[in-house]
Design a protein around this nucleic acid. Structure first.
Lengths: 354, 354
DNA sequence: TTGAAAGCGCTAACAG
DNA sequence: CTGTTAGCGCTTTCAA
């Protein structure tokens, strides 16, 4: 673990001073050092395996080439780790190392984490949530930090969140384009309701309106955010009289959609022949494994993770805090077309057993 | 991001020297400083919000209170992130920050990562794989590092892996205890075969032998490691003549088990009345959501992650490299009993159409 | 019992 | 063009 060779060793071997070595290796050759000298220094450094001690450098320059990533939760939503992965990649590409801190959302831990990160003089902090939320950033979060999958309640920080409304628009529009007019929204039932719930509802209503479809309140149902909840909620709309029954379901997430599949099977409805379904999240091991594979909307976790550290490091332009969105950037949620959407059945959903 | 108050500020406020402050705050009161002075120093430090600069301290002491966690892959196996979570928790509990580096298994990136970590003078490195593997640790991995979910091909490092054989024993024993005699093993078909495959097979055979059951080679089938593979493999054994057909399935993982559920449904077999199934991995969003909930074996990711950093930091005893297992510790895989195991059907699996 | 002084390894002024 | 000098903020002898 002990680093031995230092800049002095290089200097001695190359027959120059430590300062010269530093200048050459950092390409601060503002005062032109002869190419031969430069070459020699570089070669020696290479040969003896010199690597600068980042601590010493950081102490001097106040930049440590490290960033902090504090997240409220990591393991709960499996696909959200893509944010971490992307953040780490972006950090590496920019010569930075990433400190990962998981706080379970505990405010005391968050404060401690921020303090510890500051004590280590990180060059910046990204504060990440695993769901799109409005948050009060932890006390002491330094200016210049960026929020990931979270928008600051009082502004003041750059932030990136998924464009849930836009994603819902894409999903519901696909259904409308396929010819559907009676489209249900299987929403979730949680307290507090996540921002995404309302935003996706807004997108759903927006498309209906644009298509001249009057929203039917009976087609907006809620269920717990799991397979059972999806099955129950779907059953409720599927049991409606034939002329009120939806021909398509827009589900808040893929788990709900999985439940909707079960309900459709139970009601003898084939997907997509009798019923079209669109999910949200593009959750691995669910969306693509369902039968038929589920058309769904992907959350741009990767893009958001990368965006956050690139803005943090100044590689990408920081959003204008006085702009329309107040410094929060909406990342598009692309529609992933698979096989669960088709035209509505000709004479309303059939009812075939077995 | 700039830390302002330093030890000198505390010293000035408290009317002592920086050295005294350091002594007091680090509890190196070997030379007894009067309690009143100590108290005053501590209070001042607290009041003005002093936190030592870790870089400067590290430069001096050669300990940085940081560790590196390099993993081959993070997002691919969702449940494996529990290792990271646990490692991070253990690091925090011991006053350390964790650098996360993801290498995608690229040897060049691994070397770079190790070098970068060394340049930052981490106190130790854990090298983690997302599947139980035998690995050649990256060149330059410092002595004292610990391997996680990986055993070193040539020894030399402390390491922790799941006890796959033991987990299989627990699973198959549960089946035998329920009365089953014809138990199939749905193995995976990959090249190279993961260590876990052979180890679980060994556990399976061990239980059969102990129970006086002659293993039937026709009941050891392989499929690709996904739902489709599980369905196909399960179908193959379920189509066997009634007297050769298994009454229970031990599946290499939960995805295969999910496929086995589909096959059972297709064959008109109820679980667990007609067919018992045990999985492996206890994969969230699968195992518990299946109908009926799947009895399976949990991978001790959490325990392994914690173990790794605790050994790394010397909080937990390091395994003896000259011991029986050569420094690799087997972490138990507990059986999670849910509802997919029952006694075998009285007259062989029935054949009822849904 | 406490303070002064010497670095940890590096970079950034400033001389030469 | 290059070397000397002075720290970055802390810990740790060594003297007083």
């Amino acid at each position: 673990m002990t680093r031995r060779i230092g800049i002095k060793d290089v200097a001695r071997e190359a027959g120059v001073s430590a300062a010269t070595v530093s200048l050459v290796l950092n390409e601060r050759a503002t005062s032109r050092i002869p190419d031969v000298t430069q070459e020699r220094v570089r070669r020696v450094a290479q040969d003896i395996g010199y690597a600068p001690n980042t601590l010493a450098r950081g102490l001097r320059t106040r930049r440590t080439q490290t960033i902090g990533f504090v997240s409220d939760r990591i393991a709960t939503t499996p696909y959200a780790v893509r944010m971490i992965e992307a953040a780490q990649d972006a950090a590496r590409e920019n010569g930075h190392l990433l400190f990962l801190v998981n706080t379970d959302g505990d405010p005391a831990l968050e404060r401690d984490a921020v303090a510890a990160l500051q004590a280590h003089q990180v060059d910046g902090i990204v504060y990440a949530c695993m769901w799109h939320r409005a948050v009060e950033p932890p006390a002491g979060l330094p200016a210049g930090s960026v929020l990931l999958d979270a928008r600051p309640v009082d502004g003041g920080f750059a932030s990136v969140v998924p464009d849930d409304r836009g994603g819902a628009v894409a999903a519901v529009q696909a259904l409308v384009d396929a010819g559907h007019r009676r489209i249900a929204y299987l929403d979730i039932d949680e307290d507090p309701l996540p921002l995404a719930s309302g935003l996706r509802l807004a997108g759903y209503l927006e498309v209906l309106e644009a298509a001249g479809i009057t929203p039917d309140p009976a087609l907006h149902v809620r269920g717990t955010s799991d397979v059972a909840g999806g099955r129950d909620a779907a059953s409720r709309v599927l049991e409606l009289p034939a002329d009120q029954r939806p021909t398509a379901l827009f589900c808040f997430n893929d788990r709900l959609a999985m439940g909707a599949y079960a309900a459709a099977r139970h009601h003898g409805l084939a997907i997509p022949a009798d019923l079209s379904v669109v999910g949200y999240d593009d959750q691995q091991l669910i969306a693509a494994e369902l039968d038929p594979p589920l058309t769904t909307v992907a959350l741009p976790h990767h893009e958001m993770g990368r965006w956050a550290v690139e803005v943090l490091l100044g590689v990408r332009e920081r959003p204008d805090p006085d702009g329309a969105e107040g410094g929060v950037v909406l990342m598009p949620c692309p529609l992933v077309r698979r096989d669960s959407v088709g035209p509505p059945p000709t004479r309303g959903p059939g009812r075939r057993r077995g």
